[in-house]
Design a binder for these strands. Sequence first.
DNA 1: AAGCAGTTGATACATTCCGCGACAAAACTC
DNA 2: GAGTTTTGTCGCGGAATGTATCAACTGCTT
Lengths: 241, 241
Amino acid sequence: MNEMPHILVVDDHREIRAAVTRYLEKNGMRATAAQDAAEMDAKLATGHFDLIVLDVMMPGEDGLSVCRRLSGEGGTPILMLTALGQDTDRIVGLEIGADDYLPKPFNPRELLARIKAILRRAGRSEPLAGRLAGKKVRFAQWVLDSDRRVLIDGTGQETALTGADFKLLTVLLERARLVLSRDQLMDLTAGRRAPPLDRTIDNQISRLRRKIEQDPMQPRLIVTVRNGGYSLAADVEVTDG
Amino acid sequence: MNEMPHILVVDDHREIRAAVTRYLEKNGMRATAAQDAAEMDAKLATGHFDLIVLDVMMPGEDGLSVCRRLSGEGGTPILMLTALGQDTDRIVGLEIGADDYLPKPFNPRELLARIKAILRRAGRSEPLAGRLAGKKVRFAQWVLDSDRRVLIDGTGQETALTGADFKLLTVLLERARLVLSRDQLMDLTAGRRAPPLDRTIDNQISRLRRKIEQDPMQPRLIVTVRNGGYSLAADVEVTDG
DNA sequence: AAGCAGTTGATACATTCCGCGACAAAACTC
DNA sequence: GAGTTTTGTCGCGGAATGTATCAACTGCTT
């Protein structure tokens, strides 16, 4: 993780908000606070967050409702804060789509550990403006200049990428060696769900291969996993501009 | 996930093992039990698991140690079971690489919810070649380039492998000289259970032999163990790209 | 507006892969 | 050596994948 993760803390108690944000910031993270669901929505609309720390008990729309709403969108991971002993709440929370919960009162060190655990597992929540923005990415014989959206080979020769090429390649690079299904790729590149029998991703892969593979007939960088999807088979190294 | 997730339950108490596996199986999962670290290793070597439920307190190698060891390989997610009130243990566990913990005694329904949460988070994104990813593997007269999924012999001649060839060979190489049953191979290569009388693995072995054996009529590399399965009979040496 | 170039998604077709069933061959039992 | 079980492998066909081609769309230029 080259960037500081950005955490949104939603709680109606001023002291808790302040304490938590301060603690997170002391420990290498960005933290932003919101005092209720409405303020949370406003912050979410205008920025990117890697995780939401969400109090269950709040005036207005409560935590469970928020959780249900957000997890439907499949977006940001959620860590719920529950009142002590509310066994039901926390189980329901997990079933609804929270990624974890922590009973209040909690140990700040434990909160931090849990946040890190979720971020480590989630690994994936950044829209590509994040990790690779403005960076050069070296993989196989190529260097991707993600500012200019251009590929450069060893001899300095440049290959132009279209928007879709670039997005797909970026998604693959950020998840090198993982097998990504067509659905996941569709979701990550276009933000939409693929109808059954859709061949859009195959097409896009084919086009990308034509540009980056030495021999597109025998792809070595983007390998096909039958019944699985595609996978980028190379080590990637991210360097600053 | 078109398949039931497979959970490995590691605990030294017979009743807990039995209760947990039974509960998981009632709720749409496959579950396998191990009573200590050694048995766990054996199961891990011969089967595929989506998650490990791991007791901290065990005779022999303890949970924390196991956790540290496994999470280094970046492999299977871990849910740790801790004794009540062992605040330190659980925090350390999370920091070491467990994905979650649950204090004993626990509510089975909560265990299930947590397992589901982890599986959902982890998704099905798996590395294609496990710990051989990006490595070159030398065995007998061959070198397997696991990035390109190609076999190279002493003269530089290349032999292409299909997805199934490659997966099967990788599984065998990672467990050289172990005898693997057809069921285990099916599980490890395809992640599914073989119906009785299924000959899929035999076919796959046959196809692979045609590619890697000097004389496919008298196989030396992949030997048949009657009533047992198959075994790779060669020393393997893994080197970096 | 109209024309144009470039990009993207859809459709159609060719190709490859691999699961399955069938039968042959081999190994083992008695 | 006959019968039984286990393994080897052939060929088929459904399904998954690769990609050529075309249509729709976008953004520019004139």
